[in-house]
């Protein structure tokens, strides 16, 4: 593993046992998070974003099996770790911000209690833990943090709760922060505040962020690298400029085209992607996107396309990769 990378996922395959048979939820997923960078994950419901995150933090459901692949974090394979070892990593080296700030916090404990509780590993006096919590709250912009430690989650607004969740996630100064749609439940003006706050903190602490969102605008503004997922595969990855200016996979292209924010002329007829997402229990023999792809050729339905790098750091899984953006 390259020492410049915090996390490297190679050839990850995850399957779920279900009534309908084996659901191949992730297939040959590769992901690289360079140290100190923000990597965005884009994709629609059912593309495997959550399964990927859960594999990283070891929280896959019981009916899931990792059939092959590796997840190296700081040089060690997380898939080989015992539950005990994973517990030491979670919260300390990898932490997470969830989508809904209303349900992440325990409603019956004060913010102060919760922030001190999560420092259980540190052998320092409680007063010092409290001081650290106060400092962290002020860093995420909670006014008057000292007196607010005694407040309960319901006494904070949505935006403040999400900032508290960020403070708790960053308190242990993790090397990797996973943010799963952290701004979806927030209003537009707050979303911008939170994104800027995250970017500032990432800068000053030097951690890496894996940022999941379906809001393309937020991804464009915040991330350095982007991976695009569809039907359990990473179909394209590249720098944020590659993805937004030179999309190479037809799905990326379509996804960008569908975003009403990118359509300058007002129109009452918005673009869509005809067809439905594939059934993961009955995979097509060829490319996963072939059924909905306007450019598919005979080969697409027969052979799974390989992942090709056609520009530095820019990969796509398509037989026609590189031709899409030019036409």
């Amino acid at each position: 593993m390259d020492a410049n990378n915090v996390l490297e996922i190679r050839g990850l395959n995850v399957e779920f046992a279900s009534e309908r048979g084996r659901l191949r939820a992730l297939r040959d997923v590769d992901l690289t998070i360079p140290r100190g960078s923000i990597v965005g994950v884009v994709g629609e419901s059912g593309c495997g974003k959550s399964t990927m995150i859960n594999s990283i933090i070891g929280l896959l459901a019981h009916n899931a099996t990792v059939s092959s692949g590796s997840i190296s974090f700081q040089g060690e394979d997380l898939l080989q770790k015992s539950e005990r070892e994973l517990r030491d990593i979670r919260g300390q080296h990898i932490s997470m911000i969830f989508q809904d700030p209303m349900t992440t916090l325990n409603p019956v404990l004060s913010i102060g209690t919760q922030m001190i509780d999560i420092q259980y590993r540190d052998q320092i006096p409680k007063a010092q833990k409290k001081a650290r919590s106060i400092e962290m709250l002020s860093r995420v912009g909670i006014p008057d943090p000292e007196s607010r430690l005694d407040n309960y989650p319901h006494q904070f607004s949505g935006g403040m709760r999400q900032r508290i969740a960020i403070a708790m996630a960053l308190q242990a100064e993790p090397e990797l922060l996973i943010a799963d749609e952290p701004t979806t439940a927030l209003d537009a003006t707050l979303e911008v505040q939170i994104i800027h706050r995250l970017k500032d903190l990432q800068h000053s602490m030097g951690c890496s962020i894996l940022f999941i969102s379906h809001h393309l605008g937020v991804i464009a503004e915040l991330c350095d690298f982007v991976i695009v997922m569809y039907g359990g595969e990473v179909v394209e990855r590249g720098t944020v400029r590659d993805i937004f200016h030179r999309p190479s996979h037809p799905y990326t292209f379509k996804l960008l085209e569908c975003d009403p924010a990118r359509i300058a002329e007002t129109t009452r007829s918005l673009p869509t992607i005809p067809g439905e997402i594939p059934n993961l229990a009955k995979l097509p023999p060829g490319c996963i996107f072939a059924d909905r792809c306007e450019r598919s050729i005979g080969l697409c339905r027969e052979k799974i396309p390989p992942s090709t790098e056609f520009a530095e750091h820019h990969w796509a899984r398509c037989h026609l990769a590189g031709e899409v953006s030019s036409t």
């Binding site: 003006t189 979303e191 809001h215 991804i219 464009a220 503004e221 200016h245």
Partner: peptide
């Protein structure tokens, strides 16, 4: 202006608000 544009090179001239509703 709080509506982030899906373009990494968009020039952002933003009227950012402090605080919340």
């Amino acid at each position: 202006s709080a509506n982030p544009e899906p373009d990494p090179d968009a020039e952002i001239d933003r009227l950012e608000l402090q605080g919340e509703v």
